[in-house]
Amino acid sequence: MNIEVRDLHFVYPTGFEALKGISISIGAGEQVALVGQNGAGKTTLVRHFNGLLRPASGSVFIGDWDAARCSVAKLASRVGYVFQNPDEQLFSRDVGTEVRFGPRNLGYPKEKADGLVERALSLTGLTDKVEINPYDLSPTWRKMVALASVIAMDTPVVIFDEPTTGQDAATIARIAHVIAELHALGRTVITITHDIDFCAENFDRVIALSNGQVLLDGPAGEVLGQEEILARTYVEPPQLTRLGKRLGFKETVRNQEEFLAVVARSAR
């Protein structure tokens, strides 16, 4: 499912122009990371993909649907959105009901819905917590419930809004695993993150936003190498990328494997 954003502008009721002409195109099955300083407009942008916000001008297409003309509920069958703040997303009595809410609304047959819920719970490590009230879980686990409740909807596009913020290493690894699974299934994954190492390790494409505009957009290797431009939106390239640069590597390295590969080559 393609996402086409053309010259998108958005103004909040306060009069603040949060998006100032965004044009991007995201192909089916792409793994995209969205980075940029706080207030750059990342959340505002992705809320247009599932219709929670409507363009002031410009357009957003999800496949052949014009997002401005579809109800949020209809778009939910194509775009799953995990809120930045799980407390704004969860409302059910127990984890099981919460995760089942989406698939039930999308009208999947019972066996399929059961299967999807099962898979979402096991991917997020929640299988033994189905009967717990989400509010009795710690904030980090609540975030996993929010994640599970969206991936259970089995939408072609999945958006994560800062999934790794405040999470420990084990949970971050679990989120990376979820993203890899979705990738294997051919889903488009768009993730907003401040965790630049997470970004470098899990995504092919990086879009940097700054003040409601696209600052950089391209393959992760290219974008993360642009230290000066990224600094404008207060993003620092990953440590290994910077180290590689300082060591005079010709290419931009993003993660341990790439770094070690260059070292191994130069040692020979």
Partner: peptide, 26 residues
């Protein structure tokens, strides 16, 4: 915020009165 969360997960709240009233219960 809760209504926004429910619509994002496919609950149709525009239109049908009964459905809308029902969606307020949770």
């Amino acid at each position: 915020t809760t209504i926004a969360a429910q619509r994002s997960r496919g609950l149709e709240t525009e239109g049908h009165f009964i459905k809308r009233a029902g969606s307020l219960i949770p």
